[in-house]
């Protein structure tokens, strides 16, 4: 696996270079869920670094989501995911495992794919956050969304927004992934209905469509 691919394969690689996916590769086990509880988001929070104390009560939080700034009051323990779902009615990202395993809550922050259930809303301030609601240009659905439909990469659909976001993160960094890179790139997302065959095809189809659009 190339170094380039290692990078795009990570979801918010924690400092120190130890990540869930890297861990999997290390132990040579399947990409199923394993041991992420010991890892998690460790990006230094600017406020904390400065020694400022916030909470425990609700604090003003300013989130830039899909290019729009939202000001809310939430407790510091509220995750980015819950802030979106419960306070902003941005509900495409789903709460499933709630501990950074399944990927249903996947968003993109400053161009990096993240599990929004393991990021506190207060820590997400100052970042450009993208959710499934914000990936399409104007009225036209994103080519990934269309490709998921064409290839039946969904059944109940609860994991689907997370898969679309993970796939977008992959294609943003690697517009022409191989089949194996797609499989690995989606390794941080789980589906219970068993739609991976359609999902894998959808990502390849979307990659092609997006390249075609660029060349046109």
């Amino acid at each position: 696996m190339s170094k380039h691919h290692d990078e795009l394969d990570e979801k918010a690689p924690p400092k120190g270079g130890f990540s869930r996916r890297g861990f999997f590769r290390g132990v040579g086990v399947t990409s199923g869920a394993l041991g992420s509880a010991i890892l998690g988001e460790q990006e230094a929070d600017a406020a904390q670094a400065a020694g400022a104390k916030i909470g425990p009560g609700a604090v003003p939080v300013s989130l830039n989501i899909n290019g729009k700034v939202h000001n809310i009051n939430v407790e510091p323990r509220v995750t980015l995911l819950d802030a979106c779902r419960n306070h902003l009615d941005i509900t495409g990202a789903k709460r499933v495992c709630d501990r950074g395993t399944c990927g249903a809550c996947t968003m993109i922050a400053n161009g990096k794919v993240i599990y929004s259930c393991t990021v506190l809303a207060v820590d997400a301030q100052g970042k450009q956050i993208q959710t499934i609601e914000g990936i399409a240009a104007a009225a036209r659905p994103h080519p990934l969304s269309t490709a998921f439909v064409n290839n039946d990469g969904q059944q109940c659909g609860y994991c689907t927004p997370g898969f679309v976001m993970a796939a977008k993160g992959l294609l943003d960094k690697n517009p022409s992934p191989t089949y194996d890179q797609v499989k690995a790139g989606l390794g941080g997302n789980l589906c219970r209905c068993g739609t991976y065959v359609g999902v894998r095809k959808a990502v390849l189809e979307a990659a092609k469509a997006m390249k075609g659009a660029k060349n046109a």
């Binding site: 797609v182 390794g187 065959v197």
Partner: peptide, 17 residues
Amino acid sequence: PDMEFYKLAGAADIGEI
């Protein structure tokens, strides 16, 4: 009772179907 240790297959675990 969680999804790290109650394991489900991922996209790379299923081979060809």
